[in-house]
Simulated scan of single mutants.
Amino acid sequence: MTQRILFICFFWLTSLPLFAQTAGDSIPTERRYPLTSFIVPATLTGGGAALIGHPTREPFRSTGHVSSADDYLRFGPYGLRVALQLAGVKPAVNLGDEIAVTVLSNVAMGGVTEVLKRTINSTRPDGSDRRSFPSGHTAVAFTGAELLHQAYKHKSPWISIAGYAMASATAVLRVANEKHHWADVLTGAGIGIASVKITYAVYPVIKRKLQRHRKQPAS
């Protein structure tokens, strides 16, 4: 089972053409997207998949429900992006492109997460259902954190740190609340980050094709 999940994750991370975005008002580019940028999400995803079958929640044991903050904290990076926009802090890309990559990233993240949940059928630590692997809350939180990082890394590293701090807190709370094992949240974090990076990689290709289609004269 572990080998199958590792293969799915590896195929998902490497099957798409990789192009990089440049800083500016939009995301058109022809430069290659560095594969080294996928080291962190690949390590998180692969590490989590490797822990399947070895459920652990150390140092948490039967802590029960600690807090409901994780249900709201997962959306923290998205809220911070909105707050920065309202404060007049401009992101690295225009609003149209930012909305597009946000939607596409979340569609990719949600699709991969749901497929794995239905395929693995891992039991949650509290025994409530068999949808433990991977953590959806964590995937949402880290998708938001990576989107925040891509949009505002040119402004201040503290913005990125704030986003990833909220995402990490979400992951820890999911384990503390007996909803997930560490394997679940590690993989969820990797999926979230990789979904954004893949979207930024392929979005210029999609955008160019749409622009060419619009320029074609009607027959």
Rank of each mutant, 00 (worst) to 15 (best):
P125T: 14
M166N: 07
G96M: 06
W158M: 11
G111R: 10
L95W: 14
V89L: 05
A87W: 08
R74S: 08
Y164Q: 06
L84G: 12
S128G: 09
D97F: 05
V172D: 05
L104I: 01
K153C: 02
G79Y: 07
Q150H: 00
V107F: 01
E98M: 08
S135K: 06
R81W: 14
S135P: 11
A108F: 12
S156W: 02
A145G: 08
F142N: 08
N94Q: 03
A169C: 14
D97H: 08
Q150L: 00
F142K: 01
Y164K: 06
P91L: 06
T138C: 13
I161T: 09
P157F: 00
G110A: 07
S68E: 15
A169K: 11
R118Y: 04
A151G: 00
E114C: 09
S122R: 14
V93Y: 15
R131G: 04
H154Y: 03
E98F: 07
R74C: 10
R174Y: 13
V82I: 09
K90Y: 01
A100T: 04
A87Y: 08
A139E: 11
Q150D: 00
H154Q: 04
T113W: 07
L147R: 07
R131Q: 14
L73T: 08
S132F: 15
L116N: 05
E146L: 00
A87I: 09
G96E: 07
V103P: 05
G88H: 12
G88L: 10
L148E: 10
V172N: 05
T123R: 13
L80T: 13
L80Y: 14
L147G: 05
